[in-house]
């Protein structure tokens, strides 16, 4: 579930507001940082994180439970922005799609083990 929009990192581009498929965020009238307006509608799909150009968002893996997070800890452990890094989105990165090893998995799945 979405737990964090980092006030320090957010540049107010509102990409998250645009791309969230379940419309969780709202633009604030007098604040460039969006609000998490409908948290329980979050479906934990991680798409907002992926589209955030500055890794300001954090979605926990807990689909049904709220779980407060500490921004500094997340940043220190490398978890903030880790999904975007793994998918290979962002400047200077190679999309993970280019190294997709699913064909190996499929080969192994067909083979008896």
């Amino acid at each position: 579930m979405i737990e964090l929009i980092s006030r320090e990192r957010c540049i107010g581009c509102h990409q998250c507001v645009t791309v969230c498929p379940t419309n969780v965020f709202d633009v604030s009238p007098d604040d460039p940082v969006p609000t998490i307006a409908r948290k329980t509608d979050c479906q934990t799909c991680f798409m907002c994180e992926l589209y955030c150009p500055v890794d300001a968002l954090y979605v926990t893996p807990y689909a049904e439970a709220e779980m407060p997070v500490e921004e500094r800890e997340l940043a220190a452990s490398g978890l903030l922005g880790s999904y975007r890094a793994h998918v290979g989105w962002g400047k200077g990165r190679v999309p993970a799609a280019a190294e997709d090893a699913s064909y190996l998995i499929l080969q192994r799945m067909r083979a008896p083990h």
Binding site: P61, Y83, H86, A96, D100, A101, L104, R108
Partner: peptide, 18 residues
């Protein structure tokens, strides 16, 4: 298989890593 899994499905490990 372990390595291939990571390269096949980044979000599968996201849950576990986090």
């Amino acid at each position: 298989v372990k390595q291939a899994m990571r390269k096949a499905q980044p979000n599968f490990f996201l849950s576990f890593d986090r």
